[in-house]
Design a protein around this nucleic acid. Structure first.
Length: 259
DNA sequence: CATCTGGCACGGAC
DNA sequence: TGTCCGTGCCAGAT
C-alpha cells in the first residue's frame, strides 16, 4: 500500500503549498495560548489521498514545525502492535543525572540506527541497535512524506499518563542542527508543549506564549531549524491518560561529532 | 530530558 | 446558585 508519494514540496490541508500559504492557527486555550495548535477535527481519510499531504504549519518567533497525520488509524494500529512485539527497550537501568542526583528516566527508551552510531545526551551514551523491519518501514514513509533522510531513531515508550519527559532542547553536538527532527506518535494522544527559551523563569526577559499541541495516533511532527535552538519542548504528565504511547524521533547524526 | 512542593483553577457534590 | 473540597496542572527550587 504505497499511500505516500515522493514529493518534497509539502501540501497543506487547504491545498496550498509553502510558497502560497498563511499560517493556519487554532487556539488551544483562548486566554493562555494564542499561538498555533493542531486541533482540527480532521477526517483523516479525506486528506490522505495519493497526491496530497495534509500538512499544517505551526509557526511562532523562531519556531517552525509541520504537522500531519501520516498513517490512517488502521495502519497506525498495526504499526503500534508490531512495535510492541519488535522493539527491545533498554532495561530500567536507564539513569539520568539532574542537579547532582541520579534518576531512572520516567519512560522506556530504545535506540536504533545505522551500524556504529552512538547518541549521547545528559551524560548517557546510547548505542544504536540495528533497524527493525517496522522501524525501516516507518522511516521510509517519513522520508517519502518529507524528502528528508535519517540514520537514527530514538524510541520513547510512555506506558500511561504518569510517564513523561521534562522540558529540554535537542542540542546535542552530534545532531545536524539544520536537519529537522521527525517525531512519529503511535498510541495514546498526548499533549506536547513548546516554550521559548527567553520566556522561562520568574523574571524572564520576554513574555512569549507557549505553543501547545496534541499529538495524535499516527501523526508526524516535523521540527525544522531553528526551532530547537530557541524553544524547549516537553511531554507533560497527564493523569487521565491510561494507555501507552510510543514516540519515534528520527534524526540525522553526524558521524564524528563535528559541528 | 529529574522530583518535590505550594498555589491555583476547575468541577462535582450538596 | 454558592461554597467546600478533591484533583490535577504548573511554576519554581533544587
Amino acid at each position: 500500500m504505497d499511500t505516500f508519494v515522493s514529493q518534497t514540496r509539502k501540501r497543506y490541508i487547504d491545498g496550498t503549498t509553502d510558497e502560497q500559504r498563511e499560517p493556519v492557527w487554532k487556539k488551544f486555550k483562548e486566554e493562555e495560548c494564542n499561538q498555533g495548535i493542531v486541533k482540527e477535527d480532521v477526517k483523516e481519510d479525506a486528506y490522505l489521498t495519493e497526491f496530497s499531504q495534509p500538512w499544517q504549519k505551526i509557526e511562532a518567533e523562531g519556531l517552525d514545525c509541520d504537522y500531519a497525520l501520516l498513517f490512517p488509524k488502521e495502519e497506525a494500529d498495526c504499526l503500534y502492535t508490531q512495535l510492541e512485539e519488535e522493539v527491545v527497550y533498554l532495561t530500567d537501568k536507564t539513569k539520568i543525572q539532574v542537579f547532582g542526583k541520579v534518576y531512572n528516566v520516567p519512560r522506556k527508551q530504545a535506540t536504533c540506527g545505522d551500524a556504529g552510531l552512538t547518541y549521547n545526551y545528559s551524560g548517557v551514551s546510547l548505542q544504536a541497535s540495528p533497524w527493525t523491519p517496522t522501524l525501516e518501514y516507518i522511516r521510509d514513509a517519513v522520508t517519502k512524506a518529507t524528502g528528508q533522510t535519517f540514520n537514527f531513531v530514538l524510541i520513547n515508550r510512555y506506558k500511561d499518563g504518569h510517564d513523561h519527559m521534562g522540558e529540554h532542547r535537542d542540542d546535542e553536538r552530534e545532531l545536524d542542527p539544520l536537519c529537522p527532527i521527525a517525531s512519529v506518535s503511535l498510541g495514546a494522544v498526548r499533549d506536547f508543549v513548546f516554550r521559548h527559551r527567553e520566556s522561562r523563569g520568574k523574571q524572564c526577559r520576554r513574555q512569549i506564549n507557549p505553543v501547545k499541541l496534541e499529538l495524535a495516533h499516527g501523526s508526524l511532527l516535523l521540527m525544522n531549524s531553528p526551532t530547537n535552538t530557541h524553544w524547549y519542548h516537553s511531554l507533560p504528565a497527564r493523569k487521565r491518560v491510561l494507555t501507552p504511547r510510543i514516540n519515534l524521533t528520527f534524526r540525522r547524526i553526524l558521524q564524528d561529532g563535528k559541528k
